[in-house]
């Protein structure tokens, strides 16, 4: 029997742990800059050593994203990206032997139909969904739909989350907890927020789930720094910038650098 989405995510984290390193998670929007190119880009991420890929579902009003991802998503949408493009990219990642999850704002999933989305995502080989604007209060129907397909519903915690909320979020999350390192939108930053270690420590206190840190990570040194205390390092905008400046080769190169970073720390 093939392992479930939740099970596959658990396995890659366990494997990284056994190698005494953090997991490298990379994000790119599906259909950016075109569907064909985005498949080539995620394959380059896989080849460069990314362990788990977040395939973004392009949305017209990405209010948690900074300018780099906003532009990429606009480009994907004007080139015709749809939820079907996301499923195509998810399948490509899965076929490449890497675990794909989807990152999507809520409305496109609701409009697709939440049961239908969960079903099709599982068929395509997806393992879970990160929902950055779905609060746990509104998330019950989705948690049930994801559960019925054994997909991981992945929620975010933020530096402003109370311990009480963190524990409620961790209770309904599966796969890993996404710790947003900073109060702000996506985008590369010179330094990773000093709020991240404390946030990770607070999450650890309430769950045994793996914890991945995202927002603002762009190079191997930052990845190494986060890998000291987190189970996963999430990189998004930097991959988009690499794709913009140097295409497939630059994306593969960045993946290698970051993959080195997550192995350096411990």
């Amino acid at each position: 029997m093939s392992p479930t989405g939740v099970g596959r995510i658990g396995s890659v984290f366990a494997e990284a742990k056994s190698e005494n390193r953090a997991l490298l998670i990379g994000y790119l929007p599906a259909g950016f800059p075109t569907l064909g190119e985005s498949v080539a880009l995620v394959e380059a991420m896989c080849d460069g050593g990314v362990d788990l890929i977040e395939v973004g579902l392009p949305y017209s009003d990405p209010l948690m994203d900074g300018p780099v991802i906003q532009q990429a998503v606009d480009q994907a949408l004007s080139n015709g990206a749809t939820p079907q493009s996301v499923l195509t990219v998810v399948k490509a990642v899965s076929d490449h032997g890497v675990v794909p999850v989807v990152m999507s704002y809520w409305n496109p999933i609701e409009q697709f139909g939440i049961e239908a989305f969960a079903h099709e995502l599982r068929q395509a080989g997806g393992a879970g969904v990160i929902t950055p604007d779905l609060t746990i209060e509104e998330g019950q129907p989705w948690i049930a739909a994801a559960g019925s397909q054994e997909l991981a519903p992945i929620f975010l915690v933020a530096p402003s989350s109370t311990n009480e909320r963190i524990s409620r979020i961790a209770q309904v999350t599966q796969g890993f907890v996404y710790a947003a390192s900073t109060m702000g939108v996506t985008g590369a930053r010179d330094r990773v927020s000093n709020m991240a270690p404390q946030l990770v420590a607070r999450v650890r206190a309430s769950t045994d789930l793996p914890i991945a840190v995202g927002l603002g990570v762009s190079n191997g040194a930052q990845a190494a720094e986060i890998a000291k205390y987190a189970d996963g390092v999430i990189v998004g905008s930097a991959f988009v910038t690499a794709a913009n400046t140097g295409g497939v080769a630059a994306v593969r190169q960045l993946a290698r650098e970051l993959a080195g970073g997550v192995r350096l720390a411990r």
């Binding site: 604007d133 779905l134 609060t135 975010l156 530096p159 402003s160 989350s161």
Partner: peptide, 8 residues
Amino acid sequence: FVPEALTS
């Protein structure tokens, strides 16, 4: 329907 960072 907001990012968790805004909840508090």
